[in-house]
Write a protein that binds this DNA or RNA. Sequence first.
DNA 1: TCGATGATTGAG
DNA 2: TCAATCATCGAA
Length: 199
Amino acid sequence: MNCPDKSFYFRSTEIVAKELIGKKLVRNTSNTYSKTRVRLSGIIIETEAYGFRNDSASHAFNGLTPRNGIMFGEVGRAYVYLVYGNHYCINVSARSDKIGAGAVLIRGLYPIEGRMIMRRLRKSKQVIDLTSGPGKITQAMNINRAQNGMDLTNPKNDLHIEFGVELPSFDVIATTRIGISRAIDKLWRFDCKNRLEHN
DNA sequence: TCGATGATTGAG
DNA sequence: TCAATCATCGAA
């Protein structure tokens, strides 16, 4: 498996969000039970694109703040933030040259490696509930603010995105984004159309 | 400072 | 349908 070139993320967030479907999010972390290192991974099956001045729902819409700096910086990095005081969301920073900021929210995974560990981190939930939401993904993969800013294009990092995943052909559909109150008309949510086995 | 809001989840 | 839960950000 290999990681994409940074140029992959130097494109509009819509394109990046769409093409991240089918790629693999990988997390190496310590197993709190056995104290050993474990590799967790899942195929990305749902994403959302967030822009800059063209997107009133984006954290970057009103300009640079202490929180959203990653969206304005080098592309291909993890933007992790706490939402609703309860859950972390993980994004990948992306933007074309002409846009000053952006990110792609990873909303859904098809769990591949380390399902039993994920199950424990998620408190023994059914497999279908392990990573079917942004807050669930970070909980299942032990992702928090410590990973904010991590370079996801470096395969040596404990959090990264791998390409070259073997998958049967699949279609991606675009729909409206979830959980936002502004720019609700944009079709910037991307979903893997065909169902992968979820058990 | 202060208050409103939020890229969610799980329980009832 | 609704509470949990708190960092963030703009306004005061």
